[in-house]
Design a protein around this nucleic acid. Structure first.
Lengths: 337, 337
DNA sequence: ATGAAAGCGCTAACAA
DNA sequence: TTGTTAGCGCTTTCAT
């Protein structure tokens, strides 16, 4: 490994015959230097491949031009799409982003908050699995924005989310209008985060249309296995037990897919005998045959709005709206035709 | 925003009545302090929620406990799965990872190299879209490891990749053994990166089995549209033109899916009339009906081996093996039964 | 076992 | 327009 000496601002100053203060001003375009010195210095910088030492700059400015992004699992496409847009947004704004996979593990997630804080990130954007966000998680008390899920907290953290309850309402209403009389609700497992919001939409739609909500129609997944597996098993069991139903609203596309597999396996026609709606507009609803109707959250807006709010906070602006709700909509596909 | 003062090592020292040197040794477990002082200091650290300032530490040590990960697009599940495992690996090793989406844009990617360098990352792991990796991209000349793709370079950068040529060979051979007589090859678009390796596997298998390689059987996608769209259009055209074939090897699952759509649309039975094999074992091959046979690269091994090599380099170990080939295998599904 | 002090590279206040 | 210098928080060498 060739040991080229790394050039510092001091070297550039010496090489160009000016002071380091001048070089610093030129690098940061702060003015107070002549066109000639600027050119002279910039030439030296170019030819020596100087890049400034961000650790020194961060230390000095107590600001790192870096943000942290905490997601449960970046290999999940909902989270990875959000990550893509968050990273793009901040790259354009001159920030780098640390990626952290919490795996829905509370201790891990807390550790990430501390690590990010110690790395002097200027802000954190998180899709948190935590029940609450104690303020001592980040001693430096940096700006935080939540996306999608909202842990309790005592510092009025902004939240950008989609209206899940409305989404569930739309999905359920859609099935009702398609003449389904006995609609199952599959509640996906989501760790600490509560699954009530999506249930509420189902509940409200059922009530609004004067339909009975039967206990046995509510199916909870445990999270012990991939949700499509659990879902397939549970729906299969119901079919084998002779339980009849004609509509399924699953609070995740994967659970919806599991249900579809179960129905296919038992040769029950979808959508003619049973109609299905999922949640997320992921590949799990787009690709199967029949394709699965679903609720789409606007991931791009979720990511961009969240990033913008965080940037505003980092720049010291005051945030007027601490609850941003991003539109949600029903996508009709073959499974509920 | 409450302005809690951030406590530094100096504060901890004052609070515990020892010198900052002692506190530093205790934090870093360097020894040369008594059990009692250790306890006293640790208590103060706990109760004041002290976290060390990594910028200062980085500046001092010229090392940031941070690595950079450059991928074309993290929302693509091949890349996001790799990212997950890279991040996990480095988190366990005490490093944070910067995520960068190059969007297959050379200029952007180069800018990321410079930014990462200036942020003092200790190493970079990349799935590069670059044709070559000039050594002045990172003036500090930090360790770099390539995964999957291998740009030209003059510093013997380690590469961890799967044997794509072998994968293509296996796919083509599989179709031949299934009695396909006229096999199309769909070459996915991949920016700068050359698409020859996958073609070579097809070519070799065809030759080994004494099959003709017809010019009109090689289909190139331009990258102007999503590959499944382009693929569907091209295969549709061939069918409409009355061109007959009974096997398709697509160098990406998406392209394979587009082909499947085209065949379905023309009511051509898969696998009975035409058999299909894709590449990547992504959801695009797993979820459709019929499910698509595919070549699986071991993403976990790709990520973990790459990370391990980078870590070794960062720790100054000498790397004996600069080309790590990760196993690849054929997954038979319904599309080639 | 502990402490004093230099210095990592940079910015900004102050001087000229 | 330019330069001098203090100091950001930390590690480490050298004393003690």
């Amino acid at each position: 490994m060739s040991e080229k000496k790394v050039v510092s601002i001091k070297d550039i100053a010496a090489l160009s015959g000016v002071s380091i203060a001048t070089v610093s001003r030129i690098i940061n375009k702060k003015g107070r230097y002549s066109k000639e010195t600027e050119k002279k210095v910039m030439d030296i910088i170019e030819s020596h491949g100087y890049v400034s030492n961000m650790a020194a700059k961060s230390l000095r400015e107590a600001k790192s031009h870096t943000v942290g992004l905490i997601v449960p699992d970046i290999s999940n496409d909902f989270f990875s799409t959000i990550s893509l847009h968050v990273e793009k947004f901040f790259a354009d704004a001159g920030y780098s982003v640390f990626i952290c996979n919490s795996a829905n593990d509370s201790e891990k997630e807390k550790a990430y908050f501390r690590t990010l804080d110690s790395k002097l990130v200027d802000g954190i954007i998180c899709i948190s699995g935590l029940q609450s966000l104690p303020s001592d998680l980040t001693p430096r008390n940096i700006p935080i924005v939540c996306i999608d899920r909202y842990p309790e907290n005592d510092k009025n953290i902004p939240i950008v989310s989609s209206d899940d309850t409305m989404g569930s309402y739309l999905a359920t209403e859609h099935l009702i209008k398609k003449d389904c009389k006995n609609i199952l609700f599959i509640a996906n497992f989501t760790a600490d985060y509560n699954r009530k919001t999506r249930y509420h939409g189902y509940e409200k739609a059922m009530k609004d249309y004067n339909m009975d909500i039967k206990k046995q129609n509510i199916i909870y997944l445990s999270g012990d296995q991939p949700s499509y597996v659990e879902s397939e098993v549970q729906i299969s069991n119901m079919i084998q037990n002779g339980y009849e139903f004609d509509g399924i609203f699953a609070s995740s596309d994967r659970a919806a897919l599991g249900a579809l597999y179960a129905l296919k396996r038992h040769n029950i026609d979808v959508p003619n005998k049973v109609k299905i709606v999922g949640f997320d507009n992921s590949l799990y609803s787009q690709l199967p045959s029949p394709s699965i109707s679903t609720i789409s959250r606007n991931t791009t807006m979720l990511a961009e709005n969240g990033s913008q709010v965080l940037l505003d906070m980092m720049e010291g602006k005051t945030i007027e709206n601490h609850r941003i709700i991003v539109p949600i909509n029903l996508i009709e596909r073959e499974s509920s035709k």
